[in-house]
Write a protein that binds this DNA or RNA. Structure first.
Lengths: 237, 237
DNA sequence: CATTAACTTTAAGGTAAAATTAAAAGCATT
DNA sequence: AATGCTTTTAATTTTACCTTAAAGTTAATG
């Protein structure tokens, strides 16, 4: 039982159009002691959120009617809910750079399918961030973490969580990984990487990228970043 | 949206006891426009199949109660469902020599975990192979992939998916294939190929193209790239 | 059916690109 | 100014890809 920090259990609102997944998620979260509310559509979700003031809202991106992104906007527009933690729920392989570009104000992406254990740990991490005494609301606006299978990229803390272990990455390494991870599967050319991570003007030698890739592979394992010779690098997911 | 060939979206029945897998698969397939039905057990699956007549059934092999193999047998015993395409879903590393030996009547195996784009392409391949009238080859919105029968060319990832299997191609091979595939049926002369893939200035011998064609044929099969003697090469499917 | 031109096939270097390693150069922090 | 960490460079090795060359095959033509 982890839902109760000291006294009151954390309230979590789940929104997904599929009853099945809703049950799966709520079952696992309730087992941990969380107080779970559910809704199968965005409209109802906004209502519930207004009434119960959950600490965390998990929103499926793809929903008929009012989709996750719109729902998120509406929620963020409500004064009372300004600092609720909101996480999107997406299927793996999505283009996160695009979704992030929407800037709808989510704090996290959780990718499906997700194992109960991983779900719980992500939820815990998100709630830790909520921390009411921390009134300096840092997490405004865009998404701060992206979960790609075994790897979670936390843009706010510049760290990643790999197989449950936190790894603090230096700036450049982190930005390189975040770029590749923003569009899993896409090959980024060296030029694209240089422009995005180093900036238009900065000139560094070609081997610099290689060395950073090496560092990342050392820390994450060899399997995540793939080389496409003559083209560039990609995050394989 | 690719599920709709011309008008009616293809119906797919998914059967897996794990809720999150089910959700992952259905999310991705629905996004492509398929009409997806799900069941967490074999018995209910047979019922659904009887009622909705899906074009494709994807069955997890390992399920409690009525397992995939038995379910498949039952389905095949139903006269109405004789020519439904059935694919097993197995975990990677599972011993499926045994399963294959059972010969329960499946048309394909899909191994978990599977990447979204591979899943989609595999499903398309299956539907196309066994429903030949489904000849309409509408490209989906994703501007970076080209669907050519059993082959998907993904320009972003620099790879192709053939019969649902990813093949990472080297630069030159990929570019050659992408050129030929950009206009299926058209014969590209050697000059056109050289100019487009190698560039105006670069001078390479004529045999170089042949060798790359060979490599592609090795990886894809002989049937896709056709030689038109005295003229050039073309992609056919 | 011999000739020839065009394509196929195979295997062996050559080479450009990437990986690797170590060390130097930067930068904070104390 | 000394320490520890990050970033970049430089030098070397390794790898994968590309090209070529050489021999084999095919198909058209007289």
């Amino acid at each position: 039982m982890n839902g109760m920090s000291s006294n009151p259990p954390s309230k979590i609102l789940l929104v997904d159009d599929e009853q099945d997944i809703l049950e799966f998620l709520s079952y696992n979260l309730r087992k941990e002691g969380y107080e779970v509310y559910t809704s199968t559509n965005g409209k109802k979700a906004v209502e519930i959120a207004r009434n119960v003031h959950p600490q965390l809202i998990i929103l499926d991106v793809m929903m008929p009617d009012l989709d996750g992104i719109e729902t998120c906007r509406e929620l963020r527009a409500i004064d009372d809910l300004k600092d609720v933690v909101i996480s999107f729920l997406t299927a793996r392989g999505e283009d996160y750079s695009q979704i992030a570009g929407f800037d709808a104000g989510a704090d996290d992406y959780i990718t499906k399918p997700i194992k109960p254990r991983v779900l719980i740990s992500r939820v815990q991490a998100l709630l830790r961030r909520y921390n009411p005494e921390n009134k300096t609301n840092k997490n405004k606006g865009n998404a701060n973490t992206i979960q790609l299978g075994q790897i979670t990229i936390d843009r706010e803390a510049y760290l990643i969580i790999h197989d449950g272990t936190e790894i603090q990455l230096p700036k450049k390494e982190f930005e390189l990984l975040a770029l590749l991870g923003s569009k899993p599967g896409k090959v980024f050319t060296r030029d694209e990487i240089l422009k995005s991570v180093w900036g238009d003007d900065v000139v560094v030698g070609d081997r610099t990228i290689d060395v950073h890739v090496r560092k990342l592979r050392e820390k994450l394992g060899e399997e995540y970043i793939k080389t496409v010779k003559g083209v560039g690098y990609k995050f394989d997911f």
